[in-house]
Design a protein around this nucleic acid. Sequence first.
DNA 1: AAAAAAC
Length: 481
Amino acid sequence: MTASFSNLSLAEPLSRAVAEMGYESMTPIQAQAIPVVLTGKDVMGAAQTGTGKTAAFSLPLLQRLLKHENASTSPARHPVRALVLLPTRELADQVAQQVKLYAKYTNLRSAVVFGGMDMKPQTLELKRGVEVLVATPGRLLDHIEAKNAVLNQVEYVVLDEADRMLDIGFLPDLQRILSYLPKQRTTLLFSATFSPEIKRLASSYLNDPVTIEVARPNETASTVEQHFYSVNDDDKRRALRQIVRQRGLNQAFVFVNSKLGAARLARSLEREGMKTTALHGDKSQDERLKALEAFKKGEVDLLVATDVAARGLDIKDVPAVFNFDVPFNAEDYVHRVGRTGRAGASGLAVTFVSNSDGRLVADLEKLLKKKIELEAIEYEEDKPRGRINDGRRAWREAGELGDPRDVLDAPPPERERPARPQREFRSPAVSRDPFFDQPYQPPAADAAPAWESSTRAATSKISANIKPKRKVAALFKPEQA
DNA sequence: AAAAAAC
């Protein structure tokens, strides 16, 4: 028996919006979380991604904002009463759009603030007053410090992707934000993954919380078919092409571990004739939103992304996810794979495991609590001819590609490398900064103006910094493999 | 071995 939204007795404006969106029965996380959030208690919620988490917290939150008058006598008619924090800009954007839809027929106002966009329009919206504020941490702090956002009347805080928000990279910002909020408030934490440490840390932010676990945490959807292939780093691209062709995939996410890697891979796939775009944090926000939009519209087939896109992004009907690189954090595997097989659809997740990934695969087995079977690929294409320019690559190619976990404790074989040429250390006789450290010399009457020579000095300084690097790289290139 | 979040 599935619970339905109509049994919830949501306020009329909310049920009207829900009906208009075509929602009828609730997903398990919604059925469990909504009644609890309606009581105003703290919640720690673990639910698989793609199961309607956003509605699970925003609908009851809006309901409470409607039902309970703001107790304070603030002059601001629309103080921020609910704050929703997310770890990426795209996610903040997406959640804010959903909240807007749910709140469409209410008088409640909402806004979203995140970095990479002009501060001014955001400031205007904040000054006008919003009850629900969706934000990424950095930009929110900017607005707090500029006194654009006043958070001393916040009644509800939601940390979506809570384990990421509590990890070391975000924690300082998060703590500063929380320090601006009233102690007396409701805190809601949601994520698909919770490591034991994060769980402990999280509970220190919660007051007598209700724990909701709809599925076992750290679990991928059962509708996703998962494969792990042993692939040489040099064969990954043709493996990708082959699987896309064999499976007749019309679209896929391709995850890599670095921004540079994403840019490079996207470029080479594009050159090989696949409609590809990249999404990573070195792109401008405009480019990021455009890349995502193009993928959503089906204008590109492959979205090569860093983990900026690993979490929460809700794109319908993505048939497959490739882990071109095994993710550094096992948790991120669960999130990446969660981009496919959403809302009960089927999906395919393919992970390329290269020889140096033994540790990561072992971590993954621990998190997923299951043995990972590595499969081999039979290539249909010939191997592209490539230069051997690296001793380690030669070693990889010489040996058979076995299970990388077998060499977990074995160091890679010693390889001969030319002795590093000792570079003389010369202590500078004079400091190289022309302005500050040199005794002043009156310029000759016909000398170039000072700014020109300092520009030259700066330029030569820069090239001095670049050139040796190139030389060193050339020196290390082995004569032959 | 990295990414994300502020200019």
